[in-house]
């Protein structure tokens, strides 16, 4: 799982039947020096590309979310679905203290 801040939502007008009615969030992933302290997400976008993640937990703009990428992201679906990034956690609080 990686953490990121929700910076937008994506609405599809045309999609394959398996993904009709899905909810998509645009997420800016956290880089190392970019980590959140306590509950407020860090300012500024990270340089990494912002993935679009499938969301059924109800993440909103500015939320910190934990998302999983790769084949595991398609596991929760009943039939094979081409999803490779899914929201698995709405993060309330982060305790982060790296070694100097």
């Amino acid at each position: 799982m990686r953490l990121g801040t929700v910076i937008g939502r994506v609405t599809l007008c045309q999609t394959i039947p398996a993904l009709r009615g899905a909810r998509w969030l645009l997420v800016s992933p956290f880089a190392r020096g970019h980590f959140q302290q306590r509950t407020e997400p860090p300012a500024g976008l990270s340089r990494e590309p912002s993935p679009v993640i499938y969301d059924d937990l109800g993440g909103g703009l500015g939320d910190t979310v934990g998302f999983v990428e790769g084949r595991e992201a398609a596991m929760p679906f009943d039939r094979d679905t081409p999803v490779d990034a899914i929201n698995v956690a709405l993060v309330d609080d982060v305790f982060y203290s790296p070694l100097p």
Binding site: L3, F35, G58, V88, A89, Y96, S97
Partner: peptide, 25 residues
């Protein structure tokens, strides 16, 4: 990796309930 923190997420996928979530670098 090195453990550098942890996080709390009440609203998450049901299979993660009860598991510690560690930030690992």
């Amino acid at each position: 990796a090195r453990v550098e923190g942890s996080l709390i997420a009440t609203r998450k996928h049901r299979s993660l309930n009860g598991w510690r979530l560690l930030i690992c670098q």
